[in-house]
């Protein structure tokens, strides 16, 4: 399958998955296009559309937690940022994703 068609397929699948969790694709269309393309390339390389901003490890159980959309495995952290780590998805009420900050999960514990 070519990259463009697979990007559209991922867009279709992931849109349905994130909606009930209160997320949508980022309004930053350039970022969405870039990130989806990276995921398709990662899928072609590894067979799995991993998050483009997370480290792929030697452990299957760890890697399965960074398969897009990885929101279910990072709920508290992403809800606090109102976006997922790579920014592909944002909370439904977000209109300007450039205002959102990317901070590590460890920052939540510090308060």
């Amino acid at each position: 399958m070519n990259v463009k068609a697979r990007k559209e397929a991922l867009r279709y699948f992931f849109g349905k998955v994130v909606d009930p969790m209160g997320y949508k694709f980022s309004p930053d269309e350039e970022l969405v296009d870039f990130s989806l393309e990276q995921e398709v390339l990662l899928e072609q390389k590894y067979g799995v559309p991993y998050c483009p901003c997370k480290r792929i490890t030697a452990s299957r159980s760890e890697n399965m937690k960074i398969v897009c959309p990885c929101i279910p495995f990072n709920r508290e952290h992403f809800d606090a940022m109102k976006r997922c780590w790579c920014g592909l998805f944002v909370h439904k009420d977000v209109t300007d994703p450039s205002k959102l900050k990317q901070f590590p999960a460890a920052a939540l514990k510090k308060g």
Binding site: P20, M21, P72, F73
Partner: peptide, 8 residues
Amino acid sequence: FFLDAPEI
């Protein structure tokens, strides 16, 4: 239910 997100 999906165990890691029961909304799904």
